[in-house]
């Protein structure tokens, strides 16, 4: 890391409320040039953090959405054989068919290596892929280089990207993989913190609505027998729904008459359980 960039410390962004602890962790990871692995309940802003870092440091964000069937090579580069075959058949393109390099397309990790500027690379939901993917990726991120077998060329990263990796903990990650990352678990925000978060999303929100909806929300999170608790994302959408509904009165919330439960509870047993206990709830 150059002197110039180490002065660039991350301290929050316009759409993201950062807690002190996390800011420290991000800065330490950037200074140590280590990938940062973020775990936490869905909807606690893991992905948002990468966006916020990119915005705050004025870097471009490259997102690699990991899919279950993904092979590492797709994330690195693709050799577009079909276009080459097509070109050689018709010969009406400007590309040189004998030059394979012209048919190599960079994947997301590849892109983050070859760009001239320093970028933020977000590897989203790494746990979806199988362990092979994770293990293969390690070397690439460790060495900051990979080989393109077809043209026998090694691509080296011009700038080491800031790497953020998120995981929903669907599968456990392998030990060597964890060994090469810094780790943080984003806990669910406390009510005061949540207050701030909602205000960032709805700057003009009515104070009474904010207070009551948050209270109802945390009550509902505390409800028993719920498998998937509503998270920040659900809360934001729910408040959006409440605000959009002209018939909605804050009094309803106080009375325990809570609309749009479907926004908060996405699993049908949860929804049924919530519906059942909400009617008996007093806020």
């Amino acid at each position: 890391m150059t002197q110039e960039s180490s002065n660039r410390m991350f301290s929050g962004a316009s759409q993201y409320v950062l807690d002190e602890e996390l800011a420290k962790i991000v800065n330490i990871s950037m200074a140590l040039e280590m990938p940062l692995l973020l775990k936490g309940e869905p909807g606690t802003g893991k992905t948002m953090l990468a966006h916020a870092i990119a915005e705050a440091l004025h870097m471009r964000l490259i997102v690699l959405n990991v899919k279950s069937s993904m092979k590492l090579i797709e994330a690195l580069y693709q050799y577009d054989t079909l276009t080459r075959l097509n070109d050689s058949r018709f010969g009406d393109s400007s590309r040189d068919v004998s030059n394979i390099e012209e048919y190599i397309k960079m994947g997301k990790i590849g892109q983050s290596f070859v760009t001239d500027e320093k970028v933020v690379l977000l590897i989203d939901e790494i746990d979806k892929a199988d362990t092979d993917f994770q293990d293969d990726m390690l070397d690439v991120l460790d060495q900051m280089e990979f080989d393109i077998i077809e043209i026998d060329k090694t691509i080296q990263a011009k700038n080491r990207p800031v790497i953020i990796i998120t995981s929903n903990a669907k599968k456990s990650l392998s030990d060597p993989f964890l060994g090469r990352c810094n780790f943080h678990h984003i806990a669910f925000p406390e009510p005061e913190m949540m207050n701030e978060i909602v205000k960032v999303h709805f700057p003009d929100i009515d104070r009474e609505l904010l207070e009551h909806s948050l209270r109802a929300f945390y009550k509902m999170r505390d409800m028993r027998n719920i498998e998937k608790k509503p998270a920040t994302r659900e809360l934001i959408n729910w408040i959006r729904a409440l605000k959009a509904d002209p018939d909605f009165r804050i009094k309803d919330l106080v009375k325990g008459n809570i609309p749009y439960l479907g926004v908060l509870f996405k699993k049908s047993p949860d929804y049924a359980a919530a519906l059942n206990s909400v009617s008996r709830m007093r806020i």
């Binding site: 602890e21 420290k24 962790i25 800065n27 330490i28 990871s29 200074a31 140590l32 280590m34 940062l36 692995l37 775990k39 964890l178 060994g179 990352c181 810094n182 780790f183 943080h184 678990h185």
Partner: peptide, 25 residues
Amino acid sequence: ALNMGLITSVDDFYTAARTILVKNE
């Protein structure tokens, strides 16, 4: 990280050591 002067207080140390050493919540 300590040598790089990233850690200046016990609070910093608490956070840094956890993020670097402990890999599971």
